[in-house]
């Protein structure tokens, strides 16, 4: 058990920044550039780890606690999901609520750390994050409801594992779930079209503006946390999409990691083709995601499970 957990966490720690690297490469390819090396996110984090910290005189211990709590919460959420041939080390009845709760915990601390600096820009980012994540959470739970109804289980790793039969019966529903979950993924990870981490105007940012004052190890923890969050939520999406489970471990392994790479490339493509939405359109997008999931639920309602 202990070994499994360590293996899981280790894989997540080692591989998650790679996803960001693939996204960056894809975007560079679409822009016709060669782009930064694939391992750039690792270099970034490594650079930050070699730097000292600057603390604002306004801040308190909350400011220093937030990166640790958020990274730990996001990291621990990874042990609830299976990855390829690896089973989830922890799976129990009702773990989806814990899964959502861990993300809420991480978010809460990042938000109050932003408020701790007393900067108006960071307050603005915190306020937006709080508003949008509320909406994203509803959509997430609606997706969970559908998955739970399809599997009659409340266990995350079994809700997302299913056999080919359910794709045949409920393919359209699952696609709706995937579509709405994808929008949640974009919102939670502050990707284009919800938020653009690359802009240079603090007024328009959400996630990046909240961590303006963090530096050195704190910032490294936060960036790592963001990478892991993308990785874990992405792994969940890939798991939903994989239609068959119970094949030999090696096949599952290849399918899963192939899926992750495709997801990263897909994210890169989405980010290359779209522009950031105006902020007041974001709730609209999430409402759209909500309606998508709602249609899925309605279909289940009519067809019966």
């Amino acid at each position: 058990m202990g070994f499994q957990i360590l293996l899981h966490i280790g894989i997540v720690i080692i591989l998650s920044p790679l996803l960001l690297g693939i996204i960056g490469k894809t975007k560079a390819f679409f822009a016709g550039r060669w782009g930064a090396p694939l391992l750039q996110p690792y270099y970034d984090i490594g650079k930050l780890l070699r730097k000292g910290n600057v603390y604002s005189t306004t801040t308190t211990w909350i400011f220093q606690a937030a990166p640790i709590v958020s990274l730990a919460a996001v990291l621990v959420s990874s042990i609830l999901i299976p990855m390829g041939g690896l089973k989830a080390p922890f799976s129990f009845w009702g773990d989806i609520i814990l899964f959502a709760g861990l993300y809420a915990l991480a978010r809460f601390f990042i938000i109050i750390a932003a408020l701790d600096t007393g900067s108006s820009f960071e307050g603005m980012g915190a306020s937006r994050e709080a508003a949008f994540s509320c909406l994203a959470e509803i959509v997430l739970f609606l997706d969970f409801i559908i998955l739970a109804l399809l599997s009659k289980k409340l266990i995350l790793s079994e809700m997302i594992m299913r056999n080919i039969l359910s794709w045949e019966l409920f393919g359209p529903v699952l696609l709706l779930v995937v579509a709405s979950y994808f929008l949640v993924l974009l919102t939670e990870n502050a990707r284009i079209p919800i938020d653009d981490p690359a802009t240079h105007l603090e007024l328009t940012m959400i996630h990046e503006v909240m961590v303006l004052d963090h530096s050195g190890w704190d910032l490294a923890y936060i960036l790592y946390g963001a990478a892991i969050k993308l990785f874990v939520l992405g792994a969940l999406l890939v798991n939903i999409l994989i239609p068959f489970h119970g094949l030999p471990a090696i096949v599952q392994f290849m399918v899963f990691w192939g899926g992750m790479i495709i997801l990263a490339i897909g994210l890169g493509i989405v980010e290359s083709c779209m522009a950031r939405l105006r902020l007041n359109r974001v709730p609209q997008l999430l409402t759209g995601a909500f309606v998508l999931a709602l249609v899925g639920l309605l279909i289940i309602l009519v067809k019966g499970v």
Binding site: P283, T287, G288, V291, L294, V295
Partner: peptide, 13 residues
């Protein structure tokens, strides 16, 4: 638009 969407969802229900 957001509300129209929600209303649409409701009407679909």
């Amino acid at each position: 638009y957001g509300k129209t969407l929600l209303l649409g969802g409701f009407l679909m229900g």
